[in-house]
Design a protein around this nucleic acid. Structure first.
Lengths: 149, 149
DNA sequence: CGGAATCTGTTGCATTTGTAATAGTTGGTT
DNA sequence: AACCAACTATTACAAATGCAACAGATTCCG
């Protein structure tokens, strides 16, 4: 059926997706089971935990996640008292988001899990590989290949 | 807000997801715009194109995609005459799937795009990096880290 | 044989997502 | 001031997905 040398197993977007899904799956169980969170909610939680007060659109820029997904994630997180919203008085379109005490507790808990999980993943790699991997992944995240048609 | 050294930008599942999404996005436009396909449909098409006749569950195993997603993707692909189904006579639970002439044409077209797209992505990397990246991604796809709790 | 367990694949229903339209706010221009 | 383009965030509706239940076919074993 196949005459030439193309292989799906070498196609970078496919490989990346497979690795991403595999490596997300087990970690997902934690935020899902312990806190009933979805992926975007987990990301919002972590962004607020790491960077402190942010607006929805700032989170959207950093994560490259669509604003409607952010909006719904924030809605659910406030509903469950993980996040508070505070309207900006000088620009009333904007809301500043921050973690509640409960949100900080969930963040601390999940962050500890994330650190252990990351360490477990990296166990399969040697340190030089790991560093190169991170560098290359960042490069690919930035890169917008053009003119290949 | 942050006292320790954890960074989301170093967390492997996050990095992998960002890179995977970024690198899939532009390629997605092709199978979506030209053939109205979804991601799973594209994957099924490529598996059949590359490996010839397969059953739904074989595709599920190779892609690690859930059987209901495969089932619906196959349904749509047959509806649009990209794929044919043939019941196995010795085990009537099984259906053998294969590309129609039209399916093969779509496959050939998209495969050419994939090759060029892959090459464009790899342009950002040097060959040694690329080879290591593929190797590491395969390793991470296999690895099921346990006992990190 | 006969019944239970297992396998392939599909369907129904609730949940999640994508897309486009919308409300409300601000800043710029005349 | 009055308009209008740009911006933040939400909502509505259709589409896609996850999960559990299901139908049909086969195998296992008493």
């Amino acid at each position: 059926m196949e005459t030439e040398r193309f292989d799906l197993q070498d196609f970078l977007p496919y490989l990346l997706n497979q690795a991403a899904e595999a490596s997300s799956l087990e970690f997902q169980r934690f935020y899902k089971n312990r806190y009933g969170m979805l992926r975007t909610e987990w990301r919002v939680l972590f962004h607020l935990g790491l960077y402190g007060q942010l607006t929805a659109s700032e989170i959207g820029q950093r994560t490259r996640v669509h604003k409607t997904k952010i909006s719904r994630a924030v809605h659910r997180l406030t509903e469950r008292r993980f996040v508070t919203r505070r309207r900006d008085e000088s620009d009333r379109r904007v809301e500043h988001l921050a973690l509640t005490r409960q949100g900080q507790a969930a963040y601390a808990d999940l962050r500890a899990v994330a650190e252990r999980y990351d360490a477990a993943l990296l166990d399969a790699l040697d340190p030089a590989e790991a560093e190169l991997l991170r560098r290359v992944l960042r490069k690919l995240t930035e890169a917008r290949p053009g003119g290949f048609t």
